[in-house]
Design a protein around this nucleic acid. Structure first.
Lengths: 264, 264
DNA sequence: CGAAGTCTTGAATCGAATCAACGGAAGTGG
DNA sequence: CCACTTCCGTTGATTCGATTCAAGACTTCG
């Protein structure tokens, strides 16, 4: 618990000199950075792997850093896409809403993920809304930097393509799940996936390390929050999970996997 | 019906000199082309827009052409991905199956679409199975050509990224539909989409111009063929569609749109 | 002509949504 | 610090859409 929080706090502090806080200064304008960004900020980003120190500095020199308060939106669905982003710390929820007002949770963005690359895929507006699930820290670049960066560092284009491909595979798997599995299987799958990508071992099991409500799980699985609540309650009785307000701890990964696979 | 077959037959004949027919010669081996491929074959391909005649010839010189009989698979899910493809004529169904054997129809591939670009997105195997819905004609390149081609023609990478992005958007919309709409709305949406991308005007309405079974629509929408059958029958009674064996004609696009939008 | 593939339609069932009411925790402001 | 509001979660009762089960008709093709 405390161990995990430390790097976050440290990094937030370390970068604070260059932070543009929304409200003081709008993130969509070109804010003046008050300090040079440290290249260690992005040294561990998969998209920037294999790039040298000068490359990282070059990339960072075009970036703006922004701190996001919990609940704050980075961009909203339908807004003109003028910048693209990289999450440094925290967690973002991406939602999409249709004409009738029904909403799904598209994905959670983890640190070191690029997001909002609408322009790179030929979209003029953001196709979803990104909101900070916890206080977060992100870098952003103007769209114009995209073409310049991939021209200067072609490996970036390859990496971007691969991560886009992985997301396409993921999304197609989700279609397959929605079309062929029942609600309980889908909820189990979603919880397991979250535990793997954001889990932290505790004495009691694997805690999903950010606030996750029943409504979130419902929007991830195409269920209602009522059904999610009933399902989690039943699992708790069986000792599969331990859950509370916006909290889920997986106690029996095996058992959940069996449910996800259809062993009911 | 007959009119639609003509361009197909014409093109199949025009290219026949270079056709490698499966069975005579396996498509995954490097077959000798018997005639030079005409660059007009790919002049209209969006991915190759803005490229000069020499570029097209260069691209074609690395390609192999293949004819696909109805029902024949280009590649199967899980196979090592060694080549990528471009559909010249015809129509392919791409399906994906999960561990329990449940299957969905991922998409129909139309002429001028690239497909099987698994390697470009970092997948070692094909994530789905591509089967000819009608007799078809395709080009293929070995994976190694991908890196060479995007290095030589960078606009290709941009185009590929954009088409991948469009597919991701499409797939996410499908998740939204599955999670929030009822079966009738989803079927209406699927039929309208197909009518737009493969529709041919006839006296009676817009014919979806390839064999489309109730089972296909069921696998596209996450429904059963029974429900699809009942739904189409009801629509036929109302005069919205005219359908028969593997045939759907949209007679009232407005009406279907209203259903898809939830005006029930 | 038989066989396989496609489609239709009725009846029964069931999973999950909807409707409804309430309990408790967290945040807000005086 | 306490009252008030808002957000989040639980649980029962009821309803309904869509699947499942079942049987048969029509088409195409070898």
């Amino acid at each position: 618990m405390m161990v995990a929080c430390l790097p976050c706090s440290l990094d937030l502090n370390r970068a604070r000199g260059g932070v543009v806080v929304r409200g003081e200064q709008a993130a969509s304008t070109e804010g003046h950075r008050m300090a040079r960004l440290d290249r260690s900020l992005i040294a561990g980003v998969p998209a920037f792997a294999n790039l040298g120190a000068e490359a990282l500095d070059d990339i960072l020199s075009r970036a703006q850093i922004m701190r996001l308060l919990k609940g704050e939106a980075v961009f909203r669905q339908g807004e003109p896409a003028e910048r693209f982003f990289l999450l440094l710390h925290g967690r973002l929820r991406v939602t999409r809403i249709n004409a009738e007002g029904a909403q799904i949770l598209v994905r959670f963005i983890a640190p070191n993920d690029m997001f909002g690359v609408a322009m790179a895929i030929g979209a003029a507006t953001y196709p979803g809304t990104a909101t900070a699930a916890v206080e977060s820290l992100a870098l952003s670049w103007p769209n114009a930097a995209w073409a310049e960066l991939i021209a200067a560092y072609p490996s970036l284009a390859v990496k971007a393509m691969q991560s886009l491909g992985a997301r396409l595979q993921d999304t197609q798997d989700r279609v397959l799940d929605l079309a062929t599995q029942n609600v309980e299987q889908r909820i189990a799958g979603a919880v397991l996936k979250l535990a793997r990508q954001a889990g932290r071992k505790t004495g009691e099991g694997v805690l999903i390390d950010f606030p996750l409500s029943r409504q979130d799980l419902a929007e991830m699985t195409g269920a209602t929050l009522h059904t999610v609540s009933r399902t989690l309650s039943a699992w708790q009785t069986k000792g599969l999970v331990d859950c509370g307000r916006q909290k889920v701890v997986v106690r029996d990964e095996q058992g959940l996997s069996a449910i996800a696979a259809g062993g009911r």
